[in-house]
Every structure is written in C-alpha cells, then in structure tokens.
Amino acid sequence: MSISHHHTASGRPLRVSPAWVGGAGSARHEDLLPVREAVWVWSVRRYARLALWALPAAALLYGWTTLGIDTPPGPLVVMLAANWLSLIAMIALAGLLAGTRTRRSAVAGLLLGLAGFVLTLPLAALPADTVAAGSPLTPGQLRTVEVVAAAAVGAGWVLLGWAVFRSRLVNPADGVLLMLAAAAIGAGAHAQRPLPTVGALLLLAAGTGLAWTAGRLLPKH
C-alpha cells in the first residue's frame, strides 16, 4: 500500500507548520514572525476584540447608577460590576494597541487606570465621611484619596483615548469620545446629575465603536 506525500502512515492529513509566517516570497526574515510569536499575537488580538465589548456594558451599568433608580442588588454592586468591566476593557484596549506606535501611551494609561481602581476598591463600601476601624486616615484624607483615585482612572482613560486617536488602527473619533467621556465622568463625580449621564452616553458610544471596529480588524500576521 502506497503512502501519499500529503498523508501520514495512518491515513490522516499531513499538517506542516512553517518556521516563519508573514510576507511570502521574501528571502529575508526581517518582516516575518516565528510561528509561536504569531500564535501569541493572534491570541492577544482575539482576546482584545472580544473583551472590548465589556466597555459598552460598563457604560450601561454606570449610566444606570447615574439615573438614581433603585435596583435590587443595590448601587454598590452595580458600581463594582461597572468598574470590573471597565478594568477588563482597559486591559483589552491596551492589548489591542500594543503593536501600534502609541503603545507607550496605552501602557501608561493602563497603569494609571489600574492604580486608580486599586485605590477605589477599598473606599467603595465606606459610607460618606466615615473611616474604617483602625484606619490611620481621617475622613478628609480619605476624601483626598478618593479624588486622587478618580483622577487616576480618568487620566488613564484620557491616555488610552489619546492612544486610540493617534494609533491609526481604529476610528480616531472613538478616541475623542473616550477622552470626552473620561473628562465628563471625572467631573461628574463633583457635579450635578446631567453631567455623569452624559459621560456614560459618551462612553457607551466610544465603547461600541471600538468594539465594533476591533471585531472587523484583520491581523497583519
């Protein structure tokens, strides 16, 4: 029994993985990637494309909290869920921009956002003008920490929006909307009700645009 050059001895199709992927026909490997790195890049981009849908979901939850409507889980649970989804979207957006010329701005925005979320989480469950037992901080100092945390999150989103605007990878208008949303949400923490709702709507528009555009991107390698 003869064995085909395209099948193994068991009759299964023979699968050959090339050592390099990229521009076919090139004699040099300067523009090519090893297969293991190409698979890693593809995995990161696939995660980023899917996880970016967490941003419009976070915007919807945040917008719901700004309307003052009572929900069965309570506003704290909804706000924590919104922050969690925002953090996932922030990581996804930084991963999507990792291969662009604005990766430094994206990484800086991600680090600032992570720092802000880490500071926000311990303060989320505390009632206003109160401190936890054994805390060395006064209520005034806790208020300052809360403002710093909100500013860090807002600055992180502004840097990510700037990275989106200059990346030439997705629609630059989404970057502008993201920066406006960060400014509106950050200022909305110390303003009356219409401004936070406007910020949530801007974030919803930016998140939907980014997730839709990223889902249609084709990888270079």
Rank of each mutant, 00 (worst) to 15 (best):
Ala58Asn: 06
Val107Ser: 07
Ala115Tyr: 00
Asp174Glu: 12
Ala152Ser: 14
Ser10Val: 04
Gly161Lys: 00
Leu119Trp: 12
Leu85Asp: 05
Met90Thr: 12
Trp157Ile: 05
Ser4Gln: 13
Trp162Ala: 01
His221Ala: 03
Trp42Ile: 00
Asp174Ile: 07
Pro13Gly: 03
Ser86Val: 03
Met179Leu: 10
Leu55Asn: 06
Val118Glu: 08
Ala106Arg: 06
Ala54Lys: 11
Ser86Asn: 15
Ala133Gln: 14
Ala125Asn: 03
Gln192Tyr: 14
Leu142Tyr: 10
Ala58Pro: 01
Ala214Ser: 06
Leu52Trp: 02
Leu93Met: 15
Ser43Leu: 01
Asn171Pro: 01
Arg28Ala: 02
Leu203Asn: 13
Arg143Cys: 12
Asn83Phe: 05
Pro34Asp: 05
Thr100Asn: 05
Leu126Cys: 14
Ser135Asp: 15
Val164Trp: 09
Val78Glu: 08
Gly156Tyr: 11
Ala54His: 06
Val21Thr: 13
Leu52His: 02
Leu178Thr: 08
Ser86Ala: 15
Trp53Cys: 07
Ser43Trp: 05
Asp129Cys: 04
Thr138Ala: 01
Ala206Cys: 13
Leu114Cys: 07
Leu33Ile: 01
Thr144Gly: 11
Leu85Ala: 10
Leu61Pro: 09
Pro34Thr: 02
Ala206Lys: 10
Ile88His: 12
Thr213Lys: 01
Ala184Leu: 02
Ala214Asp: 00
Asp174Val: 01
Ala181Glu: 05
Arg103Tyr: 02
Ala184Lys: 00
Met79Glu: 14
Leu96Ser: 03
His5Trp: 04
Ala182Pro: 00
Tyr47Gln: 11
Met79Pro: 07
Val158Asn: 10
Pro18Cys: 05
Ala133Asn: 14
His29Asp: 03
Ala27Lys: 01
Arg216Val: 00
Val39Met: 11
Ala81Gln: 00
Ser17Asp: 08
Val158Asp: 06
Ala9Arg: 15
Leu33Asn: 09
Val145Arg: 10
Leu137Glu: 13
Pro75Lys: 13
Ala173His: 04
Arg36Pro: 00
Ala163Gln: 03
Ala108Glu: 09
Ala182Tyr: 07
